[in-house]
Design a protein around this nucleic acid. Sequence first.
DNA 1: GTAGGGTTAG
Length: 686
Amino acid sequence: MRAIGALFALDLVSIPTINAFRRLATSMDKFSKVASEEFLKLPRISLRSCEMYLSGSHNLAYFLRVTPHPLRSPARAYCLYASKRNFVDCFHEIQDLIEGDRGGGSGGGVAGFSTYEALVNACIGLKSIRGARRVHGYMMRSGYEADLYLANRVLLMHVKCGMVGDARKLFDEMPERNLTSWNITIGGLVDGGEYWEAFGLFLMMWGEVSDASSRTFVTMIRGSAGLGEVFVGRQLHSCVLKMGVHSDMFVSCTLIDMYSKCGFIEDARRVFDGMVEKTVVGWNSIIAGYALHGCGEEALGLYYQMRDLGVKMDYFTFSIIISICARLASVEHAKQAHAGLVRQGFVSDVVANTALVDFYSKWGKIEDAQRVFDGMSVKNVMSWNALIAGYGNHGRGIEAVEMFERMVSKGLVPSHVTFLAVLSACANSNLSDEGWEIFESMSRDHKIKPRAMHYACMIELLGREGLLDEAFSLIEDAPFSPTKNMWAALLTACRIHRNFELGKFAAEKLYKMEPEKLSNYIVLLNVYNSSGRFEEAKSVIQTLKDRRLRLLPACSWIEVGKKPHFFLFGDKSHVQTEEIYKKLDAVMLEIRTEGYVPVGKHLLPDVEEQEEHISSYHSEKLAIAFGLVSTPSFTPLQVVQGHRICGDCHDVIKLIALVTRREIVVRDASRFHHFKDGTCSCRDYW
DNA sequence: GTAGGGTTAG
């Protein structure tokens, strides 16, 4: 014990108690056994031997490498290492040490600057509230007077452990402060989402010390991004210019991020273009900005520009790019980003890999998603969520529930997103019992209050079973006012089960909430059409006209030969148009032998052109026809479309999958349709 | 032996 105490205090003259080191050695299995034995034979322990002993460990070397300010003593390294591995034990040791000292024990192992600094650093690294409380407690009780440097570290420790309130109190009581103290406290408030509070303190700082550094501005700009208030951000931008710190790359990057998060991508671009030295973070920020604005193509363009300029990419870059690809379902770009990730050695990054899991599942390759997931050395809740959502979207609810159960049994804490993923999986696959059990377990076992989206899943679940009245009561009984998602779920159910009364009711609620959203009118139109109420259907069309709402051209695309090919409704712009239409007509004839009858009732209301043959040339059919002519037989096809698939296309694609013996995955605006052997994974409910 | 700051995934 003493020996460990001595270690901490860097006072390595005393002979170690062999037992203490033996305990150490057994608690740290990674230490080389031989090294420990040799070490224990030493009659005296010097700083040097200590270093050698500790450096025998792989992990220690790693810590030394990654710690921004190289650890200057083995004591600190030890502390960081021990606490990383076994926090509780580490603190027991220190408790003994400190209490031993207070009892007037000999040996001189005092908890001094190094000990505290090491402990504080460990807590910062670990974000351990318990540890932070303990360390701070020791300091207070022992009456140790920290200098400004250490006091600031303690402040930071509180901030990083999420104890912003305590940090604020500490800050107020500090006998002496400097810019760093202010910056740390303001940063803590911003991190904790208390933006206005942060602004208050910032103004106080301005009044009290009439100074601020670029670091302060970085924090405050981040705060205005959090608020989503561009006028605050703009004011800070002018302050930055006046103070002459605008060329600071940290400032520029935060500005880019702030402008894009506030919806001003052009301003973000201007800041980016003005960067003297464009760092990788600057590139990442602007690319993420374009991605956020749905400009995936623009984002990819910048990414290739970045590559051509030889900017070294990091794991952020790949994560962003992969998530863009997931949205675009762009295989070729994603494959390259995946390769880049591997080449540059970021294979073990959680975020990038989670993005990959998401990508593969959105691309329709759920097995590949599972493979990436299985290969991940570090997984967090989000990684599990991505996989569960993947199974759910592919109509594989049983696997989704299995994954959910496995995740919980591993001791991970599911978040509300996890529940969203697993409940929607249950809804997609008609797993009623499982769904209700999980829904009820949310508040019972996991202390998570179901939100509107969770209710929407349950409404969908009931709706699939045709229990429309029950679904309606669930909306009425919800502990909050119903949201559009809940009404939309009910409306969909009404469409499938042809309940036009309730459907109309739900649709009217929706019109009020989002009058400009076309899809609501269309679903109601389908409700009427499918139940033969053409008069009502006409009135919906009239409403559409009155409100000057027009359908955006529906667009589908398919990637063939490393290139996306886009199709609009009735599109004849593709170079292979003739071939495509010929193939489509041929295959439409072929599926008639399988019992296909064109149905008008599912028609998407192209308002002006309500004719039967029109749905033959819906964009998804054209994309599939192109896939059929330009890929070898039996190749699976992946189609993405920006709107919801219509009933006729759904029937047709099922049969095309059957007659051509191809797997066809269509990702529409709401889910995946996995067509195989004449059936679809959505079980005809979408 | 001198801190504090920017970008990513469900």
